[in-house]
C-alpha cells in the first residue's frame, strides 16, 4: 500500500490478534530519577511496533522492563501471556543498543553462543550461524575473531545471533544507530521479512522515518510517558488533512474562498503557496470558487499529516525539537 507520502506500509494489524506484549502502568525510578512514569503498551502478535522518542525519553528502560532485564517498580507486563519474561526467553531475541560480543570468539561461535543462551544447542547454532553468515555476505569471516571485524560487521554478527534461534518476538533497541544508509536499508528489509514470517518485531528509534516506513503501530514516548500508542495511521489522522494550493497571483476575488488563517508562502519564482485545512463545504466547492475568482491555480493537493506532524502534535514542540537534535547528532556521527 502506497501512502500519500510515498511510504510503503503493511496492511493494518488484526485488532483481534493475540498480544505478544502487554504492559500496564510501568513505572521505573532510579534513585531520585523517574526514568519511566507510567507506560501502557499493547503489541499484537505479528506486528512491527515502534517505540519512538528522543534520547533519554525512557525507551531503553521500557524495553528492559518488557524483557525482564529490570523489574518495574509499579505496573505489570506480560510477554506471550507470562508475567516473567524469562519464562519465554527461548521465544525472544534481543539486540541491545550498546552492542557487545566477546572479542576473542569467532563469528560462528559468537552466533552459536547467543543462540545457546536462548536454548539452541551449540552445534546447531554453529551450523545455522555459518549459514546465516554466508547468506548475509559474511561467509569469508566465519573463522575470524570478533576483534578482527569492522564495527558494521560485528553489528551484523550480533544481529544474526539475535535471530539464530528463530524467535517469535524480536526486540531491537535503536537498531539503525551507527549503520550506514545501505545497511539501514538492509535492516529495514530484514525487519519486513521477519514480520512477513509471523515474527513480532519491536524496535525503539528516534528516527521518525524508520517508524513511519516500517511500523504498524507506534508508542510515542516523551518524558518517560506514553501520550500515544496505536496505529501509525491513527496517529497521523489526529491532524486534519491540509490543502496545499499553488497560485500564480496572491490577490483577487478568489482570496475570499480561503480561510482567514491560511498560511501563505511566497516562493522566489513568483508563485504562491497556501496551506489550510480542508473546508467543511468540501473541496469541490472550494475549487469552483477559486476558478471562478481567477486564482490561476498551478496545483492543488490534499496532504495527509506525516508522523512527524503527529509527533509534534502529540508529544509537543520540546520533544520534537529533542528528536530533531538527536537525528542531527546521529547524522553527524
Amino acid at each position: 500500500m502506497l501512502t500519500e507520502t510515498g511510504f510503503m506500509t503493511r496492511p493494518p494489524a488484526d485488532p483481534a490478534a493475540k498480544l505478544a506484549i502487554e504492559a500496564r502502568g510501568l513505572v521505573k525510578r532510579f534513585d531520585d530519577t523517574l526514568a519511566v512514569g507510567g507506560v501502557d503498551i499493547s503489541v499484537p502478535e505479528g506486528a512491527i511496533y515502534g517505540i519512538l522518542g528522543p534520547n533519554g525519553a525512557g525507551k531503553t528502560t521500557t524495553l528492559r522492563m518488557l524483557l525482564g532485564i529490570i523489574d518495574p517498580d509499579v505496573g505489570v507486563r506480560r510477554v506471550f501471556g507470562h508475567d516473567r519474561p524469562h519464562e519465554v526467553a527461548k521465544l525472544i531475541g534481543y539486540l541491545p543498543e550498546e552492542r557487545g560480543l566477546y572479542p576473542a570468539m569467532k563469528c560462528d561461535e559468537a552466533i552459536a553462543f547467543l543462540g545457546a543462551l536462548r536454548g539452541l544447542p551449540l552445534d546447531e547454532g554453529k551450523a545455522r550461524g555459518r549459514d546465516l553468515l554466508e547468506r548475509h555476505g559474511l561467509g569469508h569471516a566465519v573463522d575470524r575473531q570478533i576483534r578482527q571485524l569492522s564495527k558494521g560487521m560485528a553489528q551484523t554478527v550480533q544481529l544474526l545471533g539475535t535471530l539464530v534461534h528463530r524467535p517469535k518476538l524480536v526486540v531491537f533497541d535503536e537498531p539503525f544507530s551507527g549503520l550506514d544508509a545501505i545497511n539501514q536499508g538492509k535492516l529495514e528489509a530484514m525487519i519486513r521479512e521477519l514480520a512477513q514470517s509471523g515474527t513480532t518485531v519491536i524496535f525503539s528509534t528516534h528516527v521518525i522515518h524508520h517508524a513511519e516506513r516500517l511500523c504498524d503501530e507506534v508508542a510515542i514516548i516523551a518524558g518517560g510517558r506514553v501520550p500515544y500508542a496505536g496505529s501509525v495511521d491513527a496517529a497521523r489522522d489526529r491532524i486534519p488533512a491540509q490543502v496545499r494550493l499553488e497560485t500564480k497571483v496572491d490577490t483577487g476575488d478568489w482570496r475570499s474562498a480561503l480561510p482567514g488563517d491560511a498560511r501563505h508562502d511566497a516562493k522566489a519564482g513568483g508563485n504562491h503557496f497556501w496551506y489550510f485545512p480542508v473546508p467543511d463545504s468540501g473541496i469541490e466547492t472550494l475549487l469552483k470558487r477559486l476558478i471562478d475568482g481567477g486564482a490561476g491555480i498551478l496545483s492543488l493537493s490534499i496532504e495527509r499529516a506525516g508522523l512527524h506532524d503527529a509527533f509534534v502534535e502529540i508529544a509537543g514542540e520540546a520533544a520534537a525539537r529533542a528528536l530533531a537534535e538527536d537525528n542531527a547528532l546521529e547524522t553527524g556521527r
Binding site: 531520585d32 530519577t33 528522543p54 534520547n55 525507551k59 531503553t60 510517558r225
Partner: peptide
C-alpha cells in the same frame, strides 16, 4: 540486577528529571 542496568545512553546523565521534566 537492581544496580547494573539503570538506563539507556542518554538517561544516565539526567538526574532528577524525566526527559526534560524535573520530578
Amino acid at each position: 540486577k537492581r544496580r547494573v542496568m539503570k538506563s539507556g545512553k542518554a538517561g544516565r546523565a539526567v538526574k532528577g528529571h524525566v526527559g526534560g521534566t524535573k520530578t
